[in-house]
Amino acid sequence: MEITFTLNGKKTICHIKVSTTLLELLRETLNLTGTKPGCHEGECGACTVLINGKSVNSCLYLALNTNGKEITTIEGLTKPNGGLDEVQESMIKNGAVQCGFCTSGMVLNIKALQLETMQNKKVPGSGIKNSPNRNEIKKWLEGNLCRCTGYVKIIDAAEEVFNKGK
């Protein structure tokens, strides 16, 4: 079947098998291998992408349900001038990347929290707030596993993104 969606700002039309997951479509058909396949069961978060600005596991999402939606993968997070996003800059600055396998998922999920707090002035489950605290960041990232860093530097990186505006 044919689906049409916006991928990293560009209108994209694909012909897919109905049972194709978004993860398979991105990596195998569209060659966007920045989205990582980890557990394939929604546990590790390596395959996280943004759908209409919300973080979602692409391994548990049917590609056909992206019809008409906006998808952002790690490849689409760079600024129009080619520069890195502030979440990526902060990850580098804080030494939050080791093997890198979880990184794209982590970055996109931190981005999703940033979008959520910017748009709604709310940290989900914690009421009205302009920025999340360290515990709220941890809670938000509970679906992203990292086997190298012990999370400390990743959370440092996220915290710095949110403290910047203060």
């Binding site: 929604g42 919300k54 973080s55 596991n57 989900p124 009421g127 938000w140 990232l141 679906g143």
Partner: peptide, 26 residues
């Protein structure tokens, strides 16, 4: 995130907030 649920039925908000992970809850 719904304010009515938060105010009227905290038990439901808490159960939803503790379900799986952010990505799954979406």
């Amino acid at each position: 995130t719904d304010t009515r649920i938060e105010q009227l039925f905290p038990v439901l908000q808490q159960a939803a907030h503790n379900l799986a992970s952010t990505q799954i809850r979406q």
